[in-house]
Computed example of a mutant assay.
Amino acid sequence: MNLDLVARRGALRRIAGTLLAPLAGTASAAVLAQPGDHFPSRPVTLWVPWAAGGATDLTMRLLAEIAGRHLGQKVLIENRGGAGGTLVMPVLQQAAPDGYTIAQMPQPVFRAPWVQKVTWDPIRDSTPVIQISGVTFGIVVPANSPIRTLDDLFAWAHARPGELTVATNGTGTTPHMVMDELFGRRGIEWVHVPYKGVAEQMIAVSSGQLMAGVTSNGFAPFVDSGKLRLLATFGEHRTRRWPQVPTLKELGHGIVAMSPYGLAGPRGLPRPIVQVLHDAFKAAMFDPQHIAELAKYDQELAYLGPEDYGRSMRETYAAERRAVERLGLAAKGS
Results as ranks from 00 to 15, higher is better:
R8T: 13
R8D: 11
R8V: 13
R9A: 12
R9K: 10
R9T: 04
R9I: 14
R9Y: 06
G10T: 05
G10C: 07
G10E: 11
A11W: 13
L12W: 13
R13C: 09
R13V: 15
R13S: 09
R13Y: 03
R13D: 02
R13W: 08
R14S: 11
R14F: 06
I15D: 02
A16M: 10
A16F: 10
G17A: 07
G17V: 01
G17F: 00
T18G: 15
T18P: 00
L19A: 14
L19Y: 02
L19Q: 04
L20V: 09
L20I: 08
P22D: 13
P22I: 09
L23F: 15
L23D: 04
L23N: 02
A24I: 13
A24C: 05
T26G: 11
A27G: 08
A27R: 12
S28Y: 15
A29P: 08
A29C: 02
A29K: 07
A30L: 14
A30K: 10
A30P: 07
V31Y: 15
L32D: 14
A33W: 14
Q34D: 00
Q34F: 10
P35Y: 03
P35A: 04
P35T: 09
P35R: 03
G36S: 03
G36D: 02
G36N: 05
D37A: 09
H38E: 05
H38D: 09
F39E: 00
F39A: 00
S41I: 02
S41N: 05
S41M: 03
S41A: 09
R42I: 00
P43S: 05
P43L: 00
P43M: 01
P43C: 01
P43R: 03
V44M: 01
V44I: 11
V44C: 05
T45E: 13
T45M: 09
L46Y: 08
L46V: 07
W47S: 10
W47N: 09
W47G: 01
W47K: 00
W47V: 12
W47A: 02
V48M: 08
V48R: 01
P49M: 06
W50A: 11
W50K: 00
W50N: 00
A51I: 10
A52F: 05
G53W: 08
G53A: 06
G53Y: 07
G54K: 02
A55R: 04
A55L: 10
A55Y: 07
A55W: 11
A55S: 15
T56R: 01
T56F: 10
L58C: 07
L58R: 15
T59P: 01
M60I: 00
M60Y: 11
M60P: 05
R61L: 01
R61H: 10
L62M: 11
L62A: 08
L62K: 13
L62H: 13
L63F: 11
L63T: 12
L63R: 04
A64V: 03
E65N: 09
E65K: 09
E65L: 03
I66M: 04
G68S: 06
R69T: 11
H70V: 03
L71P: 09
L71V: 04
G72K: 02
G72T: 06
Q73I: 01
K74S: 14
K74R: 15
K74Q: 15
